[in-house]
Amino acid sequence: MPSIKLRAKALEGGLIEVKALMTHPMETGLRKDSAGELVPAHFISEVIVTANDKEVMKANWGGSISKNPYMAFTYKGAVGDKLKLTWKDTKGGTDSGELVVA
C-alpha cells in the first residue's frame, strides 16, 4: 500500500493547492505501550515537495504532528507541473510519491 496520498487542484489566479496524507505511526518517544514500556520515537522529521524538480515547500516536524500526518498548502504553478513529495523519518526511513497536476 502506498504510504503517500497526494492530491493537487488548480485554483483561480495560477495557484495550485496541494494536499498530502502520509501513513506513519508518528511515535513521539514519550508514549508507553500496554506493557508499560516506552515506545521509541519514530516520526517523520522532514517533508520536501518539489514542482518540476524545484522545491516549493519544506516542512520540519516533531512528534507533535498527528499520526498519519496531513498537510496542505498552495503555490504558484500550472496544470502539468510534476509534483514530488519525499519524507524522511527519525529511523532513516523514507518514501516518496509523485503526481502530475491535472
Binding site: L15, M57, K58, A59, N60, I65, M71, Y75, K76
Partner: peptide
C-alpha cells in the same frame, strides 16, 4: 512544525 516557504508558495499552511 516549521514550514519553510520557497519562492511562489503562499503563506498558508494546514496540518
Amino acid at each position: 512544525a516549521t514550514f519553510t516557504l520557497l519562492e511562489g508558495t503562499s503563506p498558508d499552511v494546514t496540518t
